[in-house]
């Protein structure tokens, strides 16, 4: 393969990746991902692992009762 063809391929690949990045930014802005920050910050919590509960302890250091009272 000629080096020029190779370069063209790389440039096109670069354009593809760059435009993917820009599209991601545009998509994020249009879909409101730069708004409602509080809601998004809480997206990691579920009813199973809810906000306000510590979910990790050394083995043998935590009982169900204390976990529930912790809630």
């Amino acid at each position: 393969m000629e080096w020029n063809y190779c370069l063209t391929f790389i440039v096109f690949l670069g354009i593809f990746f760059f435009s993917s990045g820009i599209s991601a930014l545009v998509w994020a802005v249009r879909n409101g991902h730069f708004q409602k920050f509080d809601e998004q910050a809480r997206a990691i919590f579920t009813e199973e692992e809810p906000e306000g509960t510590h979910t990790d302890y050394f083995p043998g250091k935590m009982s169900v009762n204390s976990k529930i009272s912790n809630k």
């Binding site: 998004q40 910050a41 809480r42 990691i44 919590f45 809810p50 906000e51 306000g52 509960t53 979910t55």
Partner: peptide, 11 residues
């Protein structure tokens, strides 16, 4: 935030 049970301070 997951383990502490508090949301990240500034999203």
């Amino acid at each position: 935030p997951k383990v502490l049970g508090v949301p990240i301070r500034s999203y």
